Simulated assay, not measured.
Amino acid sequence: MVYVSYSFRRYLRCSRQFTREFLKELDAIPARVLAIVCDGQKGHSARLLGVSDEFVHHSCKAYGAVATVDRADACSVPTPEVRVHNLTFDLSEYGYDDCRGEDAAPEYFHMKIFGNARYRYLALAVPRNESKLVKVLKVVLDQSVMRNIFQACHNVYKPESEPPISDNCALRLMKFNPRLFEVKLSQRMVNVTYVEDVDIFVVTEGEAARWVNFRSGMNINLALKGLQSLGQFIRLAASAQGEKAIVNALLFKFNHARSNVDEYLRSGLRETMYT
């Protein structure tokens, strides 16, 4: 958490963990305070400062699954990401012979391989549809189905310089979602507030304000877009005198946060996975 007062040089503080002891320090500051909470989706700082922990969950109209492989013997060297589109899977060897019947809607998947040589991530996403293949992968109980899909996709589309994922490696080192889940964006209902009694503005940023339950390798972009309005909000909050000016500052930050959510719901997965 970060908190800022009028006297930036004197009162700019950063803390990895917010505790109740900080409340006493905030009360002792003889000026207006801006507290920026950025301790992630599981943090407690916002609640301690009086901000509700209630989130609104928006559907991204897609299903997804993610796998990770941690090769301890490899170096953390960045590698280019790989995107593959229009994928489909044959599950006949698992007994699902009718997954591609004539009445099935198109079920094209999109895959991304990203990360570094040690920590390898594989993400699969498909626009929401009711095809037989998607229905099967949403409820399949045999975990080997998704594991084999991730392993096969990696070995076919990986860079030539990267070693394949062996059966032994997949069994020992791969962690993955055993079935498709609905991709959702969670947004804190109240991302900015003002506590009049102690003259404190509280604003949440990063995953403390909004987060997606699907790792695409570009999740940080959603947090960075939220910071674009922070400078202007600090100026508005610092100079706000009177109820109208305070409300205008709060509305400015709230509206910007809402526009970021709307933009991601419209085009977030298209930019990060579908193109």
Score class of each variant (00 low, 15 high):
Phe214Ile: 05
Gln228Thr: 11
Val136Arg: 02
Asn148Tyr: 01
Phe89Thr: 09
Leu227Asp: 08
Ser259Ile: 02
Ile220Gln: 05
Thr19Tyr: 00
Asn260Phe: 00
Met273Thr: 14
Ser186Glu: 12
Phe114Met: 04
Ser166Leu: 10
Gln151Pro: 01
Pro106Tyr: 04
Ile36Tyr: 01
Phe22Val: 11
Leu222Val: 14
Glu162Asp: 12
Pro127Phe: 03
Gly226Ala: 10
Val56Asn: 03
Val134Phe: 00
Ala123Trp: 00
Lys225Cys: 10
Glu21Asp: 14
Ala237Val: 08
Val145Trp: 01
Asp142Ile: 04
Asp262Met: 03
Tyr157Asn: 10
Asn177Phe: 08
Glu207Leu: 02
Glu205Lys: 02
Arg9Asp: 15
Arg120His: 04
Asp199Phe: 00
Gly226Tyr: 02
Asn191Met: 11
Asp27Trp: 02
Val82Gln: 04
Ile165Lys: 02
Ala74Trp: 02
Tyr274Phe: 15
Val4Lys: 02
Phe201Ser: 01
Ala240Ser: 13
Val195Glu: 13
Glu102Arg: 09
Val136Ala: 05
Asp167Phe: 03
Asn86Ile: 09
His85Tyr: 14
Arg210Glu: 09
His256Asp: 11
Lys61Leu: 10
Lys112Arg: 15
Val51Gln: 09
Asn177His: 15
Glu93Tyr: 07
Ser267Asp: 14
Arg16Pro: 06
His57Cys: 12
Val33Thr: 11
Phe254Ala: 13
Cys38Asn: 12
Pro164Lys: 03
Arg215Asp: 15
Ile113Leu: 14
Ala240Asp: 07
